[in-house]
C-alpha cells in the first residue's frame, strides 16, 4: 500500500524533480571525476589536513551547540510570544542569511574586535582578545548558521498542535515544565532538522571565518579555508580536500539520519 503510493509520482513533478537532482548532483559528480584518487592517501597523511578537518568538525559542532542553546529559546519567542515588533525581530534575526559572510566578518570585528564596541572593553578589562582564535571561528560560524536553526524550529513550533500544551497547563504543569515535557518533544524533528542544517552551514563557512578569525593552521584554518588556499597553488590537492570534506560531512549526516532523524521523522 505504502510502496504503491510512493511510485505514483505525478509526471509534472517528476521532470522538474529530475532536473533538480541533475542540477544538484552533477557538480558533485564533476568533482569526483576530476579527483586525483592516487593523491588521496598522501593528502590524508598530511598532518595539516587532519588538523584542519578536526578543527572544522569541532568548531561546527560547538557552533551548533551554541545555536541550540540560544536559538531554540529565540524560536519559541518568535513563534509563541505576543510581544509587539515580533516581525521586525524576526527580520533582524535572519539578517545573517542575506548578509554576505565577508561583511558579517567585518561586522563581528566592529563589535568583538580589539577596537570593537564590546571587544575593546574585553581587552581592557580582562586582556581577552577574540579575533584570530578558535573562539572566533565558533563565533563566526554561529553568527552565520544560527538563523537556519531558528527558522526551522520556529516553523516546527508554529505547525505544532498547541492543544497538547493547553492540556498540560490544565493538568497543572507550569510553563517551563510544559516547554520541557510537551513542546520540546513535539518539535524534536524540527529541532533535529534545524541542527543538521546549522551544522552543515557551519562546516562549510568561509567568508565570515576568514575575515573575523583569520587563517592560521591549527587555530583557525578550517577545511574550507584550507581548500581555498590550496586552490591558489595546487588545484588538484584542493579537489582532494573538498572531496574529503564532502565525504566526512555526508557520512556524518547519513549516520545521524539513520540513528535519529528517520525515527523522529516517522513519528511526525
Amino acid at each position: 500500500m505504502r510502496r504503491r503510493r510512493e511510485t505514483g509520482v505525478p509526471a509534472p513533478l517528476l521532470v522538474p524533480a529530475a532536473v533538480a537532482v541533475a542540477f544538484l548532483v552533477l557538480p558533485l559528480a564533476g568533482l569526483l571525476v576530476r579527483t586525483p584518487w592516487a593523491d588521496l592517501p598522501a593528502q590524508l597523511a598530511e598532518p595539516a589536513v587532519g588538523q584542519a578537518l578536526r578543527l572544522s568538525l569541532v568548531s561546527a559542532t560547538l557552533a551548533t551547540g551554541v545555536s541550540l542553546l540560544l536559538g531554540v529559546p529565540l524560536a519559541w519567542v518568535l513563534a509563541r510570544s505576543r510581544a509587539r515588533g515580533r516581525s521586525v525581530l524576526r527580520a533582524l534575526v535572519t539578517v545573517p542569511l542575506v548578509l554576505p559572510p565577508v561583511v558579517g566578518g567585518v561586522a563581528l570585528f566592529l563589535v568583538l574586535g580589539r577596537q570593537g564596541i564590546v571587544g575593546r572593553w574585553l581587552d581592557e578589562a580582562f586582556g581577552v582578545t577574540i579575533p584570530f582564535t578558535t573562539t572566533a571561528v565558533v563565533i563566526a560560524e554561529t553568527f552565520v548558521a544560527m538563523p537556519f536553526l531558528v527558522i526551522s524550529v520556529e516553523g516546527a513550533l508554529r505547525a505544532a498542535d498547541t492543544r497538547f500544551e493547553d492540556a498540560a497547563a490544565t493538568l497543572g504543569a507550569d510553563r517551563w515544565t510544559t516547554f520541557r515535557r510537551v513542546t520540546l518533544p513535539l518539535v524534536a524533528p524540527g529541532v533535529a532538522a534545524g541542527a543538521v542544517l546549522c551544522w552543515a552551514r557551519a562546516l562549510g563557512e568561509f567568508g565570515a571565518t576568514i575575515t573575523f578569525a583569520g587563517n592560521f593552521p591549527g587555530t583557525t584554518q578550517t577545511m574550507p579555508l584550507a581548500v581555498y588556499l590550496e586552490l591558489q597553488s595546487d588545484p588538484p590537492a584542493a579537489i582532494v580536500l573538498s572531496v574529503l570534506l564532502l565525504a566526512v560531512s555526508l557520512g556524518t549526516l547519513l549516520l545521524l539520519r539513520d540513528r535519529w532523524l528517520t525515527r523522529s521523522g516517522a513519528a511526525a
Binding site: 574586535g113 577596537q115 592560521f216
Partner: peptide
C-alpha cells in the same frame, strides 16, 4: 610569528585598517 595568514593582500590590509 604571525597570528593569521591572509588569503590576499587586501584582506591583510583590511585588518590593519580596522586596527585588529
Amino acid at each position: 610569528a604571525p597570528d593569521t595568514l591572509e588569503e590576499d593582500v587586501r584582506a591583510a590590509l583590511t585588518k590593519v585598517e580596522l586596527g585588529e
